[in-house]
Amino acid sequence: MAYSDKVLEHYNNPRNVGSLDKSADDVGTGVVGAPECGDVMKLQIQVEGDTIVDAKFKTFGCGSAIASSSLATEWLKGRSLDDAMTINNTEIVQELSLPPVKIHCSVLAEDAIKAAINDFKSKQGADPSQA
């Protein structure tokens, strides 16, 4: 299968690989996918106020899945939470020129973003000082 140059570039030089402390209050973690489907994405954000100041990922999956999550971390940094919620999988498809069989990779990345933001928000909600 032929990969686009952008997918190859992210695969060879993935951005923001790593992990943040998932128990920290200012960190939101999203883990989506399943090993038996051949892809699992873990995406984490660190938030100050309502701005995402850092983002990290680790992905088990094909090159397009790795590229989608790498790109997502790039796009997340510096965005507000509300703005980040609007990131749509079709933008990822366009940016990486993903073929139809790889669209699920972009969907997974969008899900991971939303899961991380929701995790962060639920931590704030669960925090009595914020209530």
């Binding site: 299968m1 990969y3 190859l8 695969y11 051949g38 088990f60 999956g61 090159g63 899945a65």
Partner: peptide, 10 residues
């Protein structure tokens, strides 16, 4: 284990 086949092939 823990490495997906297609990314491995890449």
């Amino acid at each position: 284990s823990y490495v997906e086949g297609e990314s491995m092939i890449m």
